[in-house]
């Protein structure tokens, strides 16, 4: 029954599942407790502009998405800081403008974009070794930044006003957090795709938040839960020959649903 484990692509898929879970555990925790899920959704969709740019320039779309989504996230942060616009409005605009840019970039590149769908909806079974290395490096950067700035991230997430009052550079820290979300988006793109990834980022932490009030335990348990559920989704997708990204998201959604029941 478990013969699939011997395929190279399946082994890479499982490694990918673990690597995405690290990003989900570390950054997804902040996304959930700071209540910036829709902001993260906007950043993920803006990343499609980067994917399109990658096509246009003939570089790896995932690599192109790294600077693009960081710039998108930071400009979003700067706009919210400087311009009188509601966060809700800014999120909606970034969401579709990023997507639109991506589509135009792909248009500009003559010819057919064969695996565009894999960036939109994910394709964990086609993850390459290069993808894995990119994910690993981004994970390490994420973990390092989270470790170095854990006090600041906790402060701005819990009580931003008080953080300012004790001299914490909250604008800088908020920007850094947005950049981290952008990096996590890139880690997740290949696995569940831009359109679905916000659920993968948020659900593990949303599940675990019901059971622990310790942020460290929350991060670790979210990572473990994320890895288990992503792998389960992967196996189910393989067995029933379903779209992997969508299956993973549905498994996560079901788990969240069940966890609320258990908690009740």
């Amino acid at each position: 029954m478990f013969e699939f484990i011997q395929y190279g692509f399946m082994q890479r898929a499982f490694i990918a599942a673990i690597l995405v879970s690290v990003a989900c555990g570390a950054v997804g925790t902040y996304v959930v407790i700071k209540k910036i899920v829709s902001m993260s959704g906007a950043i993920s969709h803006a990343a499609f502009g980067g994917v399109g740019l990658g096509y246009l320039l003939g570089v790896n779309p995932v690599v192109a998405a790294i600077p693009f989504s960081i710039v998108a996230a930071l400009s979003m942060g700067a706009v919210l800081e400087k311009v009188k616009i509601s966060e809700d409005t800014a999120i909606g605009i970034l969401w579709s403008v990023g997507m639109a840019l991506g589509i135009i970039f792909v248009n500009l590149k003559s010819g057919y974009a064969p695996d565009l769908f894999s960036y939109l909806f994910g394709s964990i079974l086609t993850v390459s070794n290069t993808d894995l290395y990119i994910m690993l490096v981004l994970d390490l950067i994420i973990l390092m930044v989270v470790f170095l700035f854990r006090r600041e991230f906790l402060g701005v997430s819990f009580d931003e006003e008080f953080s300012k009052v004790v001299g914490l550079p909250s604008t800088l820290i908020n920007m850094l957090l947005l950049a981290l979300i952008a990096l996590s988006v890139v880690v997740l793109i290949k696995v569940v795709g831009i359109i679905l990834l916000i659920a993968l980022l948020a659900i593990p932490a949303a599940i675990c938040k019901q059971y622990t009030y310790d942020i460290r335990k929350l991060m670790i348990s979210s990572t473990i839960i994320g890895a288990i559920l992503t792998s389960l989704g992967l196996i189910l997708a393989f067995i029933f020959n379903l779209s992997s990204g969508a299956t993973i998201i549905l498994v996560l959604g079901a788990a969240l649903f069940i966890s609320y029941f258990i908690q009740e």
Binding site: I33, K35, F149, R151, E152, L154, G155, S157, F158, D159, E161, F162, S163, V166, G167, L168, P169, K209, T212, Y213, D214, I215, L218
Partner: peptide, 26 residues
């Protein structure tokens, strides 16, 4: 501050909350 302005469900305990008052810098 008026305490109603933040999320009480936040994963933080009493001691960690108080410790934030001791923040010195990055």
């Amino acid at each position: 501050p008026q305490y109603t302005h933040f999320d009480l469900d936040f994963p933080i305990d009493v001691f960690e909350t108080v410790l934030m008052g001791r923040y010195h810098g990055m």
